[in-house]
Amino acid sequence: MPKGSLNSLLFKSNCKSKGEVLDWKTRFENAVGTARGLLYLHEECRDCIIHCDVKPENILLDSNLSPKLADFGLAKLVGRDFSHFWHDAVGNLEIISGRRNLDLTAQDSSLYYFPPWAATQMQQGKTMNIVEEGVAEEADMEEVRRACVVALLCIQEEEEVRPSMGQVVQMLEGKMELQTPQIPSSAVRPPHRSDTSS
């Protein structure tokens, strides 16, 4: 993939120092495109595939910056009824914020683990604070709100509250009414495993 991984564009420090920040339109299109790819794997391909390791490093970009899921090393082939499938509720607000979910170098200790801070900002009506500086100014407020709500719904611990990938795509595309997410209990503590961006 000629543009490398989404990770390299979100977190590459020398890009940020030159002011080359990935714009909101591209970020949102990548979120929707990745969700569509996961929907295909979950519901439309011959065998149901659960990726198990979706993170910016495993989203590769073609010459048009369109996302392609990669690295299926942890993927599982499962039956169509996989509602009880293992779920590590870490979530991924990284594409919105341009920062890692877990960052122990943050100056403010409330930002060490990003999801609870982001959830609190949403509850206080300050959703645009979540968007990376330099991107928020040109971001579509409604798209930001949809992306943040979907992210919080996807990290709920109760499986009956988490949306299917079909619902995720519909909510991101504005074709389905958004539910009001609770701050998940998983968002108030860091994940147990070292990989914090699945």
Score class of each variant (00 low, 15 high):
M1S: 13
P2V: 10
P2T: 06
K3M: 11
K3G: 07
K3E: 15
G4Y: 09
S5P: 03
S5K: 08
L6M: 12
L6S: 05
S8D: 15
L9Q: 12
S13Q: 09
N14V: 15
C15N: 14
K16Y: 09
K16R: 14
S17R: 15
K18H: 14
K18T: 10
V21A: 05
W24A: 01
R27P: 05
R27D: 04
E29V: 01
A31Y: 02
A31K: 02
A31V: 14
V32D: 01
G33H: 06
G37V: 10
L38S: 07
Y40K: 12
H42T: 07
H42Y: 08
E44C: 14
C45H: 01
C45I: 02
D47E: 11
C48N: 09
I49W: 02
I49R: 04
I50R: 03
D53K: 08
D53F: 00
K55A: 08
K55S: 06
P56W: 02
I59S: 07
L61V: 08
S63Y: 12
L65C: 10
S66W: 01
S66Y: 02
L69K: 15
D71N: 14
F72R: 07
G73N: 09
L74M: 12
L74Y: 10
K76A: 14
G79N: 15
D81Q: 15
F82P: 07
H84V: 12
H84L: 13
F85A: 14
H87L: 11
H87E: 11
V90H: 05
N92D: 13
N92I: 03
L93P: 05
L93Q: 00
E94S: 07
I96A: 11
I96V: 14
I96H: 01
S97V: 01
R100Y: 03
N101R: 03
L102H: 15
T105N: 13
A106T: 09
D108M: 13
Y112M: 03
Y112E: 13
F114M: 10
P115H: 02
P116W: 00
A118G: 08
A119E: 01
A119R: 01
T120D: 15
Q121P: 04
Q121A: 15
K126R: 15
K126G: 01
M128T: 08
N129Q: 12
N129F: 00
V135A: 05
A136H: 05
E137S: 14
E138T: 12
E138A: 04
E138L: 03
D140L: 01
D140R: 00
E142L: 10
E142T: 12
E143W: 00
E143A: 05
A147N: 07
A147V: 10
V150I: 05
A151S: 13
I155R: 13
I155A: 04
Q156L: 09
Q156V: 12
E158Y: 04
E158K: 10
V161R: 04
R162E: 11
P163K: 14
M165G: 09
M165S: 08
M165W: 03
M165F: 15
V168D: 01
V169L: 05
V169T: 06
M171G: 00
M171N: 04
L172P: 10
E173I: 12
E173V: 06
L178H: 08
L178A: 04
Q179Y: 09
P181E: 05
P184V: 04
S186M: 01
A187H: 09
A187E: 03
V188T: 10
V188N: 06
H192G: 07
H192K: 13
S194A: 13
S197T: 00
